[in-house]
Design a protein around this nucleic acid. Structure first.
Lengths: 151, 151
DNA sequence: TTATGATAGTTCGATATCAAAGTATATCGA
DNA sequence: TCGATATACTTTGATATCGAACTATCATAA
């Protein structure tokens, strides 16, 4: 169904696979985001930052960028919005005054405690379309593919 | 490595799998987009619209939305930018004057002819980190997962 | 024929996202 | 110590993306 591209079989297979890969992520994320937005007023990028801070403790913006694989300019925006909503706070590092340490607030922690169980159970529900073995195999293939890409 | 979430094994597996899935797509797309931008001044959304028009012929914006799974308001923006760059043109349908038919221009067609072979071969190169059987299995799992999500 | 409701796009306001340029601070070498 | 370079973050300007509200057009039913 997807690619419509006339070319070598290898290329057709690669295109089809990538399209299916992208669509599955879009489908899964697309089914998670609206409820996050509606129920908690939070976006995916914001959630991934909050989760990192919740589980790992205070991090510099640079460390956050690495964790969630986003650019520095993006991180500034996301942290700005989280700070405006008082879910995180910035403090300047004593050691290196260029560094801004971001930490989760009590309000942010309370939000995580409120939404994480439901969010996780939603993900678990979606992924249960695959057996555990299939999930493990999917994870293995994705990992193999992802780590092969030069960063 | 990834999830840090303490919960049921099912949930941990589901989270880990989703993280790997998302990261693999980010990695692959992230390695494709910069060259599209730099070499051809085109974005991913624009490319997917151009590809659809190139392979399928003129489509209404609504049909395009379904093809590339994006919202109507987004499609307006993308087509606006493509039209500004004279890669596509809009014409009002005779039958139904609410409908805007989008078609690729000669300039757009020339761009596709120029960039598609290289783009496809790049994708093929990336995906070749997996064997053909692995690609087929990955595609199957993604398809199964994606189609299970309520739309 | 006209009112009602549905459909196709657009506009608006928001966040995400990036790259590039800019600012502040730190570090290193002469 | 001072100048050059590197690093951390912000700003700027662009596109993507969404949902909601809006406009224009069509279709249906009274």
């Amino acid at each position: 169904m997807p690619s419509h591209y006339k070319g070598k079989p290898d290329e057709i297979l690669a295109l089809d696979t990538l399209i299916k890969l992208s669509r599955s992520v879009n489908a899964v994320q697309g089914s998670l985001l609206p409820s996050l937005q509606r129920d908690y007023g939070i976006t995916e990028g914001q959630l991934s930052v909050l989760e990192a801070l919740y589980h790992l403790g205070p991090l510099s913006q640079g460390q956050l960028c690495k964790k969630v694989l986003r650019s520095g300019s993006n991180m500034t925006t996301v942290v700005d919005n989280l700070e405006r909503d008082r879910l995180v706070k910035r403090t300047q590092s004593e050691d290196d005054r260029r560094v801004h340490i971001v930490s989760i607030t009590e309000r942010g922690r309370a939000l995580m405690i409120q939404l994480l169980p439901e969010h996780v159970s939603r993900i678990s529900g979606i992924m249960s379309a695959l057996t555990k073995d299939e999930q493990r195999e999917l994870g293995r293939l994705c990992r193999k593919l992802g780590t092969s890409v030069a960063r």
